[in-house]
Structures are given as structure tokens and as C-alpha cells.
């Protein structure tokens, strides 16, 4: 059973066709990197998968539960609210610009949703969240506010916040793009550790060496299509597709 199955997603903004019939399966333990030029629809794909955008057409299935399917006209129809609410719990999303809640302390950012959305036991949640912060090296920041943290620390908090919900699959949309170059390393390290623990992840990234070394699978997107989908070494070291090769040539320094 695939954790996530996307079938024939179509999405347009007004006249602009952003996703043109995209299909994709994510299996448990996959670490999938999505690469491609800016404007190719990577974020839109992630936003459709996390239901922040509604798809025009196509199916969205988490663990065999249908969040959306096609009607006879080929338009997406979404499941009823209570089903979507449950399905929502299967995934987490880490944003490019963190989107932490500025009026909550670090600890409250982590534990509020598990307590008030998932209705889990407060004490248990508290100790799990403290453990997560420890793993992120942010234990002593538990009572700080997001504005008191560096960008890298904020992004680690937002990863911990997503993990506190115990998602089965975690999406990242360019998690290091808003950070100063010297801070990207700490985030990539955390993600690498998660990969080693077999966390299922779908990562939109411009960090090519990370995509090559850490992911189990790479997708190259362009113009609303998936151009290539396969083993990172095959795609990134010896790209066969002309477009992929052209795109990767801009990153040769990184891949060195």
C-alpha cells in the first residue's frame, strides 16, 4: 500500500496551467526529492498534496483513503470534512518561511496542536515535545519565542512542530531557501537524520548534493510535467534526459 498516491493532478491558475496531469506514488520509507526550475510547479504540487490548494482534476489518496477523486467530468471531488480531517493527520508540511506562531513559545508551538487538535494526553505530549526539542538541540529554547531564534533554529522548531503530530509522511517546500547559506547545514543535517530513521519525506529542494546523497528517489519537474523519476544517482550523476542535464549543469559546482 502506498502512503500517498497522486493520479493525474491538473491545476491551473486562471489561464496558466501549472500542473499538467501529474501522477506519483510515495511508498513508506521513501525520501523523495523534487527538483526543477523555479516556476515549474513544485510548490503547487506540494500544496495540492497537502490540500492547501484544491486540484482542478485528479485523485489524491493517502493510505488507500481517498481525499479526492474524479467525477464523470474529470473534475476533482473532495471527501467530506470529517474524512479530510482524518486524512490531514497523515501528513505534515514544513514551509520555506517556517510559519511558526509568533505569539506562542517554542514549546507551545509544538504541543498545542497535539493537545487541542489530536486531543492527546497533555503530559505525554509535553514529554514527547521536550524530547523532540532535545533532538533538535533546542531544549534550552523551549520557553523562547520564535522572534528570539535564528532562522535555522526557527526552521528546526517548525520541523519539530510537524513531527510532534506524528505524521506518516512529511513534506518540505524548500526548507533551506529562506536561510543564510551558513545556516542551511543544520537543517540538512536534521533532515538527513530523519531519512536515516526512515521517515517518509517529500522534499522540494535546490540543494542538489543533498538530493543526490540523501534521497532514495528524485523527480525532475519542468513546466508542470514530471520529466524524470528515478534513482538519484542515475538522474543526477548521468542524466539521460536533455532537459535534466541542462538544468543540472547550473549546479555543477555543488555536485563536484
Amino acid at each position: 500500500m502506498a502512503l500517498l498516491e497522486i493520479k493525474n493532478i491538473k491545476k491551473s491558475f486562471q489561464d496558466l496551467e501549472v500542473l499538467k496531469n501529474i501522477s506519483l506514488k510515495v511508498e513508506e520509507g521513501d525520501v523523495l526529492s523534487i527538483i526543477g526550475p523555479s516556476g515549474s510547479g513544485k510548490s503547487t504540487l506540494l500544496r495540492c498534496a497537502t490540500m492547501l490548494e484544491t486540484m482542478d482534476g485528479g485523485e489524491l489518496i493517502y493510505l488507500d483513503e481517498k481525499a479526492a477523486w474524479n467525477n464523470e467530468k474529470g473534475q476533482s471531488v473532495y471527501a467530506k470534512k470529517s474524512d479530510l480531517r482524518r486524512i490531514q493527520g497523515y501528513f505534515g508540511l514544513v514551509f520555506q518561511n517556517f510559519n511558526l506562531f509568533p505569539h506562542y513559545t517554542v514549546l507551545k508551538n509544538l504541543e498545542d496542536a497535539p493537545i487541542h487538535v489530536q486531543k492527546r494526553d497533555k503530559k505525554e505530549v509535553r514529554s514527547e515535545c521536550m524530547e523532540l526539542l532535545r533532538r533538535m538541540g533546542l531544549e534550552e529554547k523551549a520557553n523562547a519565542y520564535p522572534c528570539e531564534l535564528s532562522g535555522g533554529q526557527q526552521q528546526r522548531v517548525s520541523i519539530a512542530r510537524a513531527l510532534a503530530m506524528k505524521p506518516k509522511i512529511l513534506f518540505f517546500d524548500e526548507p533551506t531557501s529562506a536561510l543564510d547559506p551558513e545556516l542551511t547545514g543544520e537543517i540538512l543535517k536534521v533532515m538527513k537524520e530523519l531519512a536515516q530513521e526512515h521517515m517518509t519525506m517529500v522534499i522540494v529542494t535546490h540543494e542538489m548534493s543533498f538530493a543526490r546523497d540523501v534521497s532514495s528517489r528524485v523527480i525532475f519537474m519542468e513546466n508542470g510535467y514530471i520529466v524524470e523519476d528515478g534513482d538519484p544517482n542515475e538522474i543526477m550523476v548521468n542524466p539521460k534526459n536533455e532537459r535534466t542535464r541542462e538544468f543540472l549543469s547550473h549546479f555543477n559546482d555543488n555536485l563536484g
Partner: peptide, 20 residues
């Protein structure tokens, strides 16, 4: 982004408004 973060974390509309 505040609404989106709340939505992905599963807050309902009322929680999102009053808490976030």
C-alpha cells in the same frame, strides 16, 4: 502562512481564528 500552518496542523476554523 499563519492560516496555512494552522490548516496543515488540523486546527478547525474557530480554533484558527481564536487561537492563532
Amino acid at each position: 502562512g499563519q492560516y496555512e500552518a494552522a490548516k496543515v496542523l488540523g486546527y478547525n476554523k474557530i480554533q484558527t481564528f481564536f487561537k492563532i
